[in-house]
């Protein structure tokens, strides 16, 4: 028996495990983000680091897919919302159209693309580290879900 208000050992253990997992994930995201921010584009360290992260995420996704297939019924996945798919696809199409018009519009300074705007922001190392951490978080979410 446990006193009223006290959490049982299993729940406490689960909370500790979650906190440890969150701390580890944060440390990995911060570490990889900082390492990527320390590299410069068009160099081999950038290729090795970014390529290594991509290979690791692809491996995690492949292993996750095998485990998922063993555990789950593929017919029980969530339904795709058609209306929302159309609306968000229209937004993506507008973004692509605007990106292409900027890309082929002439001088980059006068017609900034999304990439050139992001490049400008990434001249600040902290912004590049945050961007890389966000990118890795998105890839990890995709691979592990």
């Amino acid at each position: 028996m446990h006193p009223a208000g006290a959490s049982p050992p299993a729940a406490r253990h689960s909370l500790v495990a979650r906190v440890a997992l969150a701390a580890t994930a944060t440390a990995v995201l911060a570490g990889v983000g900082t390492a990527i921010a320390a590299t410069r584009t068009f160099t081999w360290p950038a290729e090795v680091l970014t390529g290594g992260v991509e290979i690791a995420v692809a491996l995690a996704a492949a292993l996750g897919a095998v485990a998922h297939r063993r555990r789950h019924d593929p017919t029980r996945r969530t339904a795709l919302d058609g209306r929302s798919l159309v609306v968000w696809s229209a937004v993506v199409a507008l973004v692509v159209a605007w990106e292409l018009s900027a890309l082929f519009g002439g001088v980059r300074h006068l017609h900034p693309t999304l990439s050139s705007l992001v490049d400008t922001a990434f001249r600040v190392d902290a912004a590049k580290a945050a961007g890389a951490a966000l990118w890795l978080a998105l890839g990890s979410w995709l691979a592990l879900r």
Binding site: A46, V57, A58, A61, R77, T78, L80, D81, L138, A143
Partner: peptide
């Protein structure tokens, strides 16, 4: 949530991962 629904399908997940990999390469390499 829509991305989550798309990623629920194997083909959707592969497409999203390829897009993610391209984005990383484009931005950081």
């Amino acid at each position: 949530r829509l991305l989550s629904q798309v990623a629920d399908r194997p083909a959707g997940k592969v497409a999203l991962l390829l897009g993610w990999a391209w984005l990383g390469w484009h931005l950081f390499v």
